[in-house]
Amino acid sequence: MGLVNGLPAHVLLVHFVVVLVPLTALALTVGAIWPSAARRMGVVLPLLALVTLASVPLATGAGEWLEEHVGDNALVRRHAELGDGLLPWALGLFALSALVWWAARRTAPAGPAASDGTRWSALPVRAAAVVLSLVVAAGAVVDVYRIGDSGAKAAWHDGFSKTATGQDADDR
């Protein structure tokens, strides 16, 4: 994907990633910790994660096109390397969101005195899902931050003056 309305598509598509990854991470974490929240979110949780997952290769593909159309430098290469690492995090968000959604659908709320013991026997599995969700959510958000920071540095390292210039500077 190249240009959209005269702008590199990457510059537009990254905004989906920057918004959707943290939003999905938050929804996953809330759903994993509070199954009632996962039940309320319903199928929206895995669908949000699926859209997030789809947005990552779109943004990286557009980024690869852009990389071929800008000057070669270490900052751009670093940003591209970091960007290539986001897909596994997005896949993890999707897989865990689907698991949390599925588990919330399958388990009705049971009181602590449930006679069949299903609430307590599922506790280790639920605890593992919570821990995995927290790790993947945090990893995805940190990775998006690192990628965005490196992209901003690559785009703006020589693109502005540290002192005001032009007519507006005279008005101050």
Rank of each mutant, 00 (worst) to 15 (best):
R39Y: 05
H10S: 01
L82F: 06
P112M: 12
E68Y: 01
G166V: 02
G31L: 11
L47C: 11
L13M: 09
G151M: 04
T165K: 15
S121N: 01
G2T: 00
S161A: 15
H157V: 02
P112A: 14
A138M: 00
G139P: 03
V11F: 12
A9K: 13
G6M: 05
P22G: 04
A54L: 14
L58C: 03
V14K: 13
L82P: 11
P109S: 08
L87T: 02
G139A: 10
T163C: 07
W65H: 02
L26C: 06
A129M: 14
A80Q: 05
A110N: 10
G117R: 09
A152S: 14
T165V: 13
T107Q: 04
A25L: 02
A110V: 10
R106C: 02
L3F: 09
V4S: 13
R172D: 04
Y145W: 14
P35W: 07
M1L: 11
L26I: 08
V131T: 09
V43D: 15
L47V: 12
L93F: 08
A110R: 14
V43L: 13
L96I: 07
I33K: 04
V76C: 04
A110L: 15
A127L: 15
E64I: 09
A164R: 10
G151D: 11
V70M: 10
V18H: 06
G166E: 14
W120C: 01
V11T: 08
V135W: 01
A127H: 15
E64Q: 02
L50R: 04
A98G: 06
D158G: 05
L26E: 04
P88R: 00
H15S: 11
L93D: 10
A140V: 00
A90C: 05
H10M: 05
G148K: 11
A54Y: 06
F94A: 08
G42Y: 13
P57H: 05
T118I: 00
Y145Q: 12
L12N: 05
L47D: 06
P22T: 09
N5C: 00
M1A: 13
V136M: 01
P109R: 01
V125N: 12
R77T: 03
V11W: 02
A98H: 01
S36M: 09
L82T: 06
T107R: 06
S36W: 03
R105D: 05
D168G: 15
H10D: 06
A137S: 13
A103P: 04
V70D: 05
D168M: 15
L53P: 03
H157L: 03
P22R: 00
L87I: 01
A80G: 06
A25Q: 08
L66E: 03
A32H: 04
T24W: 08
G148P: 09
E67K: 15
A154R: 08
G83N: 11
V19D: 05
R40Q: 10
S55Y: 11
A49G: 00
A32E: 03
H157M: 07
A127N: 15
S121K: 13
A155M: 07
A164V: 06
L87W: 04
A62I: 01
V51I: 03
L93Q: 07
A95R: 00
I33M: 04
A27H: 10
D168K: 15
W101M: 02
L45H: 02
D149F: 12
G6Y: 07
S115D: 13
F94V: 10
A113W: 12
W89N: 10
A114L: 10
G61T: 06
M41R: 09
A140I: 06
L13W: 09
A129N: 09
V130Q: 08
W156P: 02
